[in-house]
């Protein structure tokens, strides 16, 4: 094995620092927040919320792997979050369907009866 190749392989085999995962999670959270604030379609807003939840999950599991005292409990929390998110999707889509049935639209802008 030539030494430069070995060096390259060693460089490539470095462990990822914890900040890496967390920053990816932060960026994904920000993207999800942007989408949840800006899109007009209620279902798309839902999908962006799911993105945010996944970003959080990623952070949790990253902590569970990297922190020595936790005993991997982050992964357990992540499982529970997945369960709750699944339940939320079910109920939320049921609500969207109900709203669609009465108003014939999923445009969030038009669901504004609480306006002053």
């Amino acid at each position: 094995m030539p030494p430069q190749a070995q060096q390259l392989l060693d460089a490539l085999n470095q462990t990822i620092p914890l900040e890496g995962y967390l920053i990816v999670g932060a960026i994904m959270f920000a993207i999800g927040a942007y989408g949840a604030l800006v899109r007009r379609n209620a279902v798309v807003v839902f999908m962006c919320i799911e993105l945010m939840i996944n970003a959080v999950n990623l952070s949790l599991v990253a902590f569970s792997d990297y922190l020595p005292d936790a005993g991997g409990a982050g992964a357990g929390y992540a499982v529970l979050v997945i369960a709750v998110a699944a339940a939320e999707v079910a109920v939320g889509l049921a609500v969207v369907l109900a709203v669609y049935r009465s108003r014939k639209t999923v445009n969030v802008d038009e669901v504004n009866l609480m306006k002053w």
Binding site: L37, V45, V108, V111, L113, W116
Partner: peptide, 17 residues
């Protein structure tokens, strides 16, 4: 302040964030 109550959930979400 009444103007803040736009009725749109996304506005409220914006304020929360």
């Amino acid at each position: 302040l009444r103007r803040l109550q736009t009725g749109g959930a996304q506005n409220y979400a914006l304020f929360i964030l």
